[in-house]
């Protein structure tokens, strides 16, 4: 899932300080799982904003909601009738949700309330880690099910660099070396013999290098 983290409150205060009626809109999808932008975080943020502006002696209407998914039109549409009750929206969805809101609620300032970080998994409660960079052409079949693009700091495709030390990446002792993991896994699977065939340069056209991407699945199109 998409992982995000809350923006510093000061940044959000700065966005909304000139608006009187503000809607804080969460999303029940990915950002709820990573505890950055679900209903709970909406309530916390809205309360903090009220508290701050009250202390400043400024009257503001700050309302709360959370939508099933901000990245789908059907869940954003019900808000369309009410959106003019607000001067601005702080979206706690990922960058996709916030942008989709901006697309749909024309003329309404939409501010991001979270920083969208990566596609990842939950390692333990409160810890999320990156696992995929959406390169558009999955290669993990040959790397033991571990992605070197997401997990090697230099996205090397032919094995570990000379900086790998005791299982850690040269960039930080806290970052496992992706290629060390791949090596262990290939060994486990008895697939180490594949390792010595060089992997050719990757075609990055399916990645962000090819420009904004789009998937069309004709058989399900209306």
């Amino acid at each position: 899932m998409v992982k995000a983290k809350p923006k510093p409150i000061g940044e959000i205060i700065d966005y909304v300080k000139d608006f009187d009626k503000v809607l804080v809109a969460g999303c029940d999808g990915c950002v709820t799982v990573c505890e950055a932008g679900g209903l709970k975080e909406v309530q916390v943020l809205a309360s903090s904003l009220r508290l701050y502006f009250n202390k400043e002696g400024k009257r503001k209407d700050i309302e709360e909601t959370s939508l099933t998914r901000q990245c789908d039109r059907e869940y954003l549409e019900p808000l369309l009738d009410k959106i003019d009750n607000y001067d601005a929206v702080v979206s706690l969805a990922c960058g996709v949700g916030a942008q989709f809101m901006a697309e749909l609620y024309k003329g309404k300032p939409i501010f991001p309330g979270v920083d969208t970080c990566f596609i990842g998994s939950t390692q333990e409660r409160g810890v999320w880690v990156e696992r995929c960079q959406a390169c558009g052409q999955c290669i993990i079949a040959s790397t033991g099910g571990i992605c070197p693009i997401a997990r090697c700091s230099k996205r090397m495709l032919n094995g570990p660099c000379g900086g790998s030390e005791k299982g850690s990446c040269e960039v930080s002792k806290d970052t496992p070396c992706g290629w060390h993991l791949i090596y262990e896994r290939l060994k486990e699977l008895g697939q180490l013999d594949h390792f010595e065939a060089p992997t050719d340069p990757k075609d990055w056209t399916t990645s962000r290098d090819g420009g904004p991407r789009k998937i069309v699945k004709e058989d399900v199109q209306p």
Binding site: N158, G159, P160, C161, G162, G163, S164, E165, K166, G167, C177, W179, H180, Y183, E184, L192, F195, E196, A197, P198
Partner: peptide, 23 residues
Amino acid sequence: AAANPFADPYEIRVSRLAKKVAA
């Protein structure tokens, strides 16, 4: 090319050189 026999995982360092030679 370079080779670092002292980096980890040690056992892969020979294969890594073999790969560079193959390239």
